[in-house]
C-alpha cells in the first residue's frame, strides 16, 4: 500500500521587496515525484540546498505545495482538514537536537505530542514508557535533557514522535550534528523501528554511509529527483553521484577505482565484506 505519493510537487520560495513586488523566485522543489510504500525505509540524498529539507517539511505539512499534489496516508496535504491527522501519522525529527526538546524532563518531553492530541493520562504514561523503551532511553526518563549526549537527545526526539503512534517517521538530517557514536545510536534506533514495528522511515541525509541501510534511495539535486533505486544501483554510478556533489562510501569508491584499474570487481559494492569476497575470488 502506498503511504506517500507525490505527483509533480512544486515548491517556490518567493521573495518580495517592500512594495510586495516579486524580487526573486527560488524553486526548491521542481516537479518531484515520490512513492513510498507502507513499511519501507527510503533515504533521500542530496547536498545542502538540493531541496531535500523542503521536501521533508512538505511530508509533515509544515509547508504546502505551490503546485502539484502530495498525498500522505491517502490524504491530500492541500486540504486543511487533514492537517492534524497527517502530522500525527507522519512524525518528524529535526537536525538540531537541542531545538526540538520542549520540556525540562525527558519523560515530559516525550509526553508533549500525545498531550497535544488529547490522549488520556493513563494512556500517555503507557505510550511514554513504550516509546522510551523502543529507543533504549527508559532509564533516563527522569533526567534533564541538558546533560544528555547529542545521540541520546535525538533518541528522545524520536521517542517523542513515536509516542504519537505514527505510521511513518520523517528524519531531516538527524545525524548532521552528531559524532560517530551518536550517529550510530540514532541510525540503529531508526532501523529497529522500521524492522520491528514496521514504521515507514524517510531519512533525509547527505551522509552516504547512512543510505546503505535503506530499501530505496532518492537522489535530489536542484530541487529535482535525479536518481532513484536500490542503494546498490545508486552506488554503482560513482561518476554521476560525484557530479551531484555527493561522494561515495570509501569502500565503494575503492572498489570503483580498482575496477577502473582493471580488476574485475562487480559494480555497486557496498560493504567491506563484499569487497573482501570479490577480491578473494579474483586472487
Amino acid at each position: 500500500m502506498k503511504f506517500i505519493e507525490a505527483r509533480k510537487l512544486i515548491h517556490e520560495y518567493i521573495r518580495r521587496d517592500e512594495e510586495g513586488n516579486v524580487e526573486s523566485i527560488l524553486t526548491a522543489l521542481d516537479q518531484v515525484d515520490l512513492d513510498v510504500k507502507q513499511g519501507e525505509f527510503v533515504a533521500v540524498l542530496g547536498h545542502n540546498g538540493s531541496g531535500k529539507s523542503t521536501l521533508a517539511k512538505h511530508l509533515n505539512v509544515l509547508l504546502t505545495a505551490s503546485g502539484g499534489t502530495l498525498w500522505v496516508d491517502g490524504k491530500d496535504t492541500k486540504d486543511p482538514d487533514n492537517l492534524w491527522a497527517i502530522r500525527q501519522n507522519a512524525g518528524m525529527v529535526f537536525q538540531n537536537p537541542d531545538n526540538q526538546i520542549i520540556a525540562s524532563v525527558v519523560e515530559e518531553d516525550v509526553a508533549f505530542g500525545p498531550e497535544n492530541i488529547g490522549v488520556s493520562t493513563p494512556e500517555i504514561w503507557k505510550r511514554v514508557e513504550r516509546s522510551l523503551k523502543s529507543v533504549g532511553m527508559i532509564k533516563y526518563r527522569e533526567h534533564s535533557p541538558n546533560r544528555l549526549s547529542g545521540g541520546q537527545k535525538q533518541r528522545i526526539a524520536i521517542a517523542g514522535v513515536m509516542a504519537m503512534e505514527p505510521k511513518c517517521i520523517v528524519l531531516d538530517e538527524p545525524t548532521a550534528m552528531l559524532d560517530p557514536n551518536g550517529r550510530r545510536e540514532v541510525l540503529d534506533a531508526v532501523e529497529q523501528l522500521n524492522k520491528e514495528k514496521g514504521i515507514t522511515v524517510i531519512l533525509i541525509t547527505h551522509y552516504m554511509e547512512e543510505v546503505v541501510r535503506a530499501d530505496r534511495v532518492y537522489v535530489m539535486d536542484n530541487g529535482r529527483v535525479v536518481m532513484q533505486g536500490t542503494p546498490r544501483s545508486i552506488f554503482s554510478q560513482v561518476d554521476t553521484l560525484k557530479s551531484y556533489r555527493l561522494d561515495v562510501p570509501q569502500i565503494t569508491l575503492l572498489a570503483y577505482e580498482l575496477r577502473n584499474a582493471g580488476l574485475n570487481i562487480p559494480e555497486g559494492i557496498l560493504t567491506r565484506q563484499e569487497l573482501v569476497e570479490a577480491l578473494c575470488r579474483l586472487y
Binding site: W84, M92, N96, Q100, I102, F112, P114, E115, S120, W125
Partner: peptide, 25 residues
C-alpha cells in the same frame, strides 16, 4: 533561529495551543 526551529518542532508534534490538551501529570 532556535525559536524558529522550536516553533516548527512543536507544530510538527501537533501543538495547537491549550485547547483539547491533556496532561501526563
Amino acid at each position: 533561529r532556535r525559536a524558529n526551529d522550536l516553533a516548527m518542532a512543536m507544530e510538527a508534534r501537533c501543538y495547537h495551543g491549550g485547547q483539547g490538551r491533556t496532561k501526563m501529570k
